[in-house]
Simulated scan of single mutants.
Amino acid sequence: MANMSKERVTEYLRAIILILHENGGSLSAKKVIEELEARLKPNTVEKYEYKGGGVRWIKVMQFSSIGLVKAGWLRKKKGVWYITEEGEMSLTLEPDVFRQTIDEKYRQWAQSRNLSVVEGEDLVEEAAADEFQSRNFEQAQNDALEEIKNHIRKLDPYEFQDLVAALFRGMGYYTPFIAPKGPDGGIDVVAYKDPIGAESPRIRIQVKHRPDSKIGRPDVQALSGSLHRDGYIGIIVSSGGFTPDAISEIRTSGKHMEKMDLDSFIELWEQHYEKMTDEDKQLLPLRAISFLAPQE
Rank of each mutant, 00 (worst) to 15 (best):
S116W: 14
Y232I: 02
K78I: 02
G172L: 15
I289W: 04
D230T: 02
S112G: 14
G185C: 08
D122S: 13
K77T: 01
F291Y: 02
I250D: 12
V237D: 01
V32C: 03
L268K: 02
Y48W: 13
D212K: 08
E138N: 11
W73Y: 06
R56L: 14
L74D: 14
L227K: 08
L223D: 12
P95G: 07
M4H: 04
V55Q: 02
K105T: 11
V207G: 04
I203R: 00
G25W: 07
D245N: 12
D280V: 10
E138L: 03
E22F: 04
N114A: 15
Q271D: 15
L123P: 01
R229Q: 09
G172P: 04
A29T: 04
P211Q: 03
I196V: 07
N150M: 09
A140G: 04
E7L: 03
I266W: 06
L167S: 00
R210M: 11
S226A: 10
H228I: 13
L145K: 10
L283S: 13
L227Q: 09
S290P: 00
V80Q: 07
R56G: 13
S64A: 15
R107D: 14
S200H: 09
K208I: 09
K255H: 14
S5L: 07
E104A: 15
G87M: 12
V220T: 08
M171R: 04
Q206T: 02
I152K: 02
L284D: 14
G120Q: 15
A222T: 13
I235T: 03
I187Y: 03
K208F: 04
I152F: 05
I178D: 09
R210I: 10
Y82I: 05
D122I: 07
T92I: 04
Q133Y: 04
R14G: 09
I66T: 12
S64T: 11
